[in-house]
Amino acid sequence: MKKGFFIKNLDKETYRIIKAIAARRGVPVYRVINEALSLYANLYDSLAAETEEESNSRVYESLLGDPRYTGKWVVISRGRLIAVAETWEEAVRYMRDFVKRERPACGIVVRVGEEVERVEILGSSLEML
């Protein structure tokens, strides 16, 4: 029997996706994991150049146009989608729990598809009164 590794705390959802990819391709799961690990190792330098804020923004952009998330509140931190909620208050509660557990430096709570109006700061006219 070949030697193997035991890895704790693998993300179940990601593992399920990898398993589904392997099934679709008709190859063993370990082969897809090996490919994913090599890909990450090759891309590591360019990924490391991205800040946490940028990677959070990138995750948000990947959700745009996906009907499962349109109009929903999403919580993003550490470059991954943490939770999906119906209201801002619910999304904030998810982020509060995540902050307690993982202490991230930054995060996103936004309704998918929300647009922000352009801001103007042109000096107060009140001071001329």
Binding site: E53, S57, Y60, G107, I108, E120, I121
Partner: peptide, 23 residues
């Protein structure tokens, strides 16, 4: 206030117009 933890994505926030240019 910890607002950096519940921010809107940087890429959807347009630059602000000010008397001294955009920020």
């Amino acid at each position: 206030l910890g607002l950096q933890l519940v921010e809107l994505p940087l890429r959807i926030i347009p630059a602000a117009r000010t008397l001294a240019g955009s920020i």
